[in-house]
C-alpha cells in the first residue's frame, strides 16, 4: 500500500515536469506523459522519496510557498555581497571554516539546508557529519558553535523544519 502511494507521488511530480517540458495539453502528449512518468516512477521511487503523498499536505505547501521568495531574496543579497567583496580594492575577507549544529533529522532536510546555506551570503557547506555541518565562511563573525548556529542555519530552519 505504502509502495503504491510512493509510486503515485513520484509519478505525479514527473508528470508535472513532463507537461512543463512539452508546454501543450493535447490528448496524445498527456497519454504519453502518463505512461512515461509511471514507467520511470516504477524504477526510481525508492531513491526519490521517503514520505510519499504526505508532501502534499496543505501546511507543507504553504511553507514551501512562503519559503521560495524568502530564499530568492537571500540569493540576491548573497550576490550583492559577493560583488561588494570582489570589487572592493582591499577585498574585505576573513575566511575560515566553522562548525554548526542542525536540528533537521531527514536526509532531504539536510540536503535542502546545505543547498540554502551554499547559496546565501558568504557561506559554503564543506561537509556534513551526522547533525554537524562544517561551513566555510567568507567573513567569520564568531568562532563559537552556539552563536554560529544561531547566525547561519537557524535562519532557514523555521521553514525547512516543516517542509522536510
Amino acid at each position: 500500500m505504502n509502495k503504491i502511494v510512493k509510486i503515485l507521488f513520484t509519478a505525479v511530480i514527473y508528470f508535472v515536469v513532463w507537461i512543463l517540458l512539452t508546454a501543450s495539453l493535447k490528448i496524445e502528449e498527456i497519454f504519453v506523459g502518463i505512461i512515461v512518468s509511471l514507467g520511470i516512477a516504477l524504477f526510481t521511487f525508492e531513491n526519490f522519496t521517503s514520505k510519499g503523498l504526505r508532501y502534499f499536505s496543505p501546511k507543507r505547501l504553504l511553507y514551501i510557498i512562503r519559503y521560495i521568495p524568502f530564499f530568492l531574496w537571500e540569493v540576491i543579497k548573497a550576490n550583492f555581497d559577493v560583488a561588494y567583496r570582489v570589487i572592493h580594492p582591499k577585498m574585505p575577507i576573513k575566511p575560515g571554516i566553522v562548525e554548526v549544529k542542525t536540528s533537521l533529522k531527514t536526509d532531504t532536510g539536510k540536503f535542502l539546508l546545505a543547498n540554502s546555506i551554499t547559496l546565501t551570503p558568504g557561506t559554503l557547506t564543506i561537509d556534513v557529519v551526522g547533525d554537524r555541518l562544517f561551513i566555510h565562511w567568507i567573513y567569520v563573525k564568531t568562532k563559537d558553535i552556539e552563536k554560529a548556529t544561531k547566525m547561519i542555519p537557524a535562519h532557514f530552519e523555521w521553514a525547512l523544519k516543516e517542509i522536510e
Partner: peptide
C-alpha cells in the same frame, strides 16, 4: 550548490590548504 559542495569537500579531503588570511579551521579537529 551540490556540485560546488562536492568540489569543496574533495578539495578539503585532498588537503588543499586554506589561505594565510584564514582565522579558524574547525574541520581540522574532526
Amino acid at each position: 550548490p551540490v556540485s560546488s559542495h562536492a568540489i569543496g569537500r574533495s578539495a578539503y579531503r585532498s588537503k588543499v590548504p586554506l589561505c594565510g588570511k584564514s582565522v579558524v579551521d574547525k574541520c581540522e579537529e574532526e
